[in-house]
Design a protein around this nucleic acid. Sequence first.
DNA 1: GCTGAAATTATTTTT
DNA 2: TAATTTCAGC
Length: 867
Amino acid sequence: MIRMTEPSKITNHSVPDHHPAAGGIAARARASVGPKYLTGLNPEQREAVESLDGPVLVLAGAGTGKTRVLTTRIAHILSQGRARPGEILSVTFTNKAAREMKHRLGQMLGQAVEGMPWLGTFHSIGGRILRTHAELAQLKSNFTVLDVDDQVRLLKQLLQAENIDDKRWPARMLAGLIDGWKNRGLSPTQVPSGEAAMFANGKGGKLYTSYQERLKILNAADFGDLLLENIRIFREHPDILRQYQQRFKYILVDEYQDTNVAQYLWLRLLSQAPSPKAVIPGRLEEPNPESGDESTARDSTLRDSAMGFDAAHRPGMTEHAAMTVGANAPTKNICCVGDDDQSIYGWRGAEVDNILRFEHDFPGAKVIRLERNYRSTGHILAAASHLIAHNEGRLGKTLRTEDEDGEKVTVTGAWDSEEEARAIGEEIEQIQRMGDKLNEVAILVRASYQMREFEDRFVTLGLPYRVIGGPRFYERAEIRDALAYLRVINSPADDLAFERIVNVPKRGLGDATVQMLHDHARKRRIPLFEAARAVVETDELKPKARGSLREVVTQFDRWRAQREVTAHTDLAQIVLDESGYTEMWQKDRSADAAGRLENLKELVRSMEEFENLQGFLEHIALVMDRDGGSEEDAVSLMTLHSAKGLEFDNVFLPGWEEGLFPSQRTLDEQGRAGLEEERRLAHVGLTRARRRAKLYFATNRRIHGTWSTTIPSRFLDELPAANVEITESKGGSAWGGTGGYGASRFDDMEAFGSSYTTPGWQRAQANRNRGQGGGGGRGSFAEEASSFSSSPDFGGSFGSRRRGPMTIEGELVAKSTGTTSEFALGDRVFHQKFGYGRVVKIDGNKLTIAFDKAGEKKVVDSFVQRA
DNA sequence: GCTGAAATTATTTTT
DNA sequence: TAATTTCAGC
């Protein structure tokens, strides 16, 4: 912990000393010179940093220096003596973003920033506040944070108890509904009755209520509760709210466009000046004199009811509560940074509306636009801007750059997804030959199933890649199992954890036993663990199960005793070993078993950072994210969603086809709003690129196993012709040789509003007819494509204009070095990704291996080792 | 209680 | 298609 009692000491600014109270004047006086940290900011950034009073919205487009503004602003507040580190609330969405801010702040201030206790994610800060006041939410301060899986299992039990068919009404769906309600700040009593009735013939609301009750009994909270319970506590206990309002002199919010209603309410409560001024209950906002706009009516209703302004009529809610939250309390210094054009989490409850309505919600707000982009070249930026301009619901920004135009954005059509992957693979090799690092190459897909094709291709080529995103570290089964053991040790009442591991590894304690324990536990109102302890003393169980269960109980008792005398990391190791859990994975011969054991080690290692088991368990659910990737030079493969906030020199964007991108499902479910969100996703994708953005679409794609012909994405038609170059995929087979596309593709774009008249659609029609002749059964497109492209004649007549002699059939491309492989036919081998297999064919350094689990694959020999 | 075979169902996923 | 999940039979 650093002490920052003397703010001026921690800064580099050129004016020696100042009195905190004179900060405003001093700042103005210094404007021409300025502290060192301000130099290098452009005028808008600087304004965003220096506008300390009142609400500020910084609209920061992609690549405009958003994080820099946020961190510099904090440094500025500190150096001006406006607030001490503990008086600044700074919230992000991800741990990664929080870490990044801490890191950069540390650099700027020249030391570690443990002194910023309130810099963190919404959930970690909400969790922290909730632990402080846990008893007000009928919890103990050591409550468990449940993850989605625990949630669903709990709900499943509730559904069973209610005799609801969980086929017809899946627990997942209910979890989604409850999550949605919580995102909107709705407690069980506040859910609109219509919505509550939708699930299980009217039982939805009741289930939500009993779910909450169960959580309290289990001493657990889900992610939504971390904020929702905060809001409730703030509302019911104005004194507590006031305490926080007084503490937080400045509030900063990152990625404001991604906030949901609950987060908005939470921020709004905290951002009001701590005045106990009473207002008329029943109104969130005082009638706004100059705005009689109807558009806000709907939202006000939503917000009012979410806020609980009907609360005064309900039992248990004091009038006080309703009043302090109220309306026109002067707003404090809140600064929200975001970009409405990068709002891509609407489906998760994010309300773009929050950012669109900022000026309305925070009267007198200053809005600052950051439009100077320091990332991408002219063509890329123009393409992205033009595309996003098709959206209607936006605040409007025009990104500009002083960079050169650079290369045009390319659009390439491929016959099918396999060819798409092949073409991209080759372009990447080309980029590599030109000297670029693979670390500067990313492939961004709309849906994760698109990744497979690339992985297969890269494995064949021997091109190093890494998948970013996917299941998070703490979501992996082995980690959660291990955590469940520790949870049961830490709190014997954690039924969910107990249930998870009673029979992992297998101990012969199946459903019947667990069911029995449940009955027993419910009858006596005791936790499952205690029920188990009691049951082994009876002869209700068969001897075998009884013995196993007794062993489990004894083991846990022993571990709990050991806890007093053993370091928590050692204890964890002991538990994993003695329970047979480690052994279970050691015996497992599947490919990822080794990785799982490695993860378990990593888990134990990571416990060292915490003082004790309790502290570890409290933070693990909130803090633990994916392990930091290796430093190797490798292509990054990820979804568009997980690419937000990243940048690369070269960005490949495959799969720009109607149905896939924009996603049909989003269109069906969200209509125009969905389309706009998809378009924002496209915008995010394009703006990840610094030097090169390359778009692809395939004419044929296999969806759920069956081939279908697709048409190019409407987003392609929305790109400005001047900044885009149409190229042909190697082999040119996408067009079946009609060859008819070139510069004219976008010529008359403006003339046609409908996608049915675009060149893209017309071409697709032509292709479709052709495809039918080929007899479009299963797999036929791929076969057709490869048979075409393996014909030398074909290559000759439609050959690539951009590339040298046609290389056919990717597999053959790898020059057989002549050196014989060190492997022989029939060798048993191991591959990192595919596991164990047998060599069935050797072609130079390329091996064809029949994997036990993954089937037959072609692999470069250096990627496998003898088993 | 466990195992393999049939049935089911397919986005995106910050915490 | 393929991965997951449920179910019937041992």
